[in-house]
């Protein structure tokens, strides 16, 4: 079941679109904001709320990179792996992150603290390599400075 708050937030967006189903992505993001990810149940709930089948919702949900259909950790690290960051050594940064967290890209730490996901260009190419932790953008990364950056995310 969607919570009252989720419903309210989705409904607040309704007047901005010509058809209810146009809210599909918005609604999934609202659910994700509250739960961290989009479960099968959430897919069904969103569908019911918008007059779509769960299949139709999932068709949309699975298309987009930032709708998580699997559980993620408390903090999501999106490390840029696109060209400018690559030129400036994002592979080494990512390898270092994997080493610190003890996981591979796409995985979540055992304590569910972090999920590490590579992401296309974050638009921070002048400060490459860059990563996004939750909503915070961090640039000019090196294998040596990332560990300290993660400390504030508990």
């Amino acid at each position: 079941m969607l919570s009252e708050e989720e419903k309210r937030e989705i409904e607040a967006e309704l007047p901005h679109y010509e058809r209810r189903q146009a809210l599909c992505i918005e609604a999934l993001k609202i659910v994700q904001k509250h739960h961290g990810w989009v479960s099968d149940e959430a897919v069904r709930d969103v569908g019911e709320f918008l007059g779509m089948s769960p299949h139709q919702v999932d068709s949309v949900a699975t298309f987009y990179n930032l709708i998580y259909r699997r559980k993620v950790g408390r903090h999501v690290i999106h490390v840029c792996d696109s060209v400018s960051c690559w030129v400036l050594g994002c592979d080494a940064v990512q390898d270092r992150l994997c080493e610190i967290l003890g996981i591979k890209p796409g995985e979540t730490t055992d304590d569910e603290r972090f999920t590490l996901l590579p992401i296309p260009c974050l638009g921070a190419c002048d400060h490459a390599p860059a990563m996004l932790v939750d909503k915070d953008l961090h640039g000019d990364l090196t294998p040596d400075n990332v560990e300290a950056l993660l400390e504030r995310y508990t």
Binding site: D40, V43, M52, S53, P54, H55, Q56, V57, D58, S59, T62, F63
Partner: peptide, 19 residues
């Protein structure tokens, strides 16, 4: 019909049901 859809993207596009 509403229970057969395209899922995922790029060369992982999958035609099937949510479950």
């Amino acid at each position: 019909g509403s229970d057969l859809v395209a899922m995922a993207a790029h060369n992982h596009v999958y035609f099937g049901r949510h479950e």
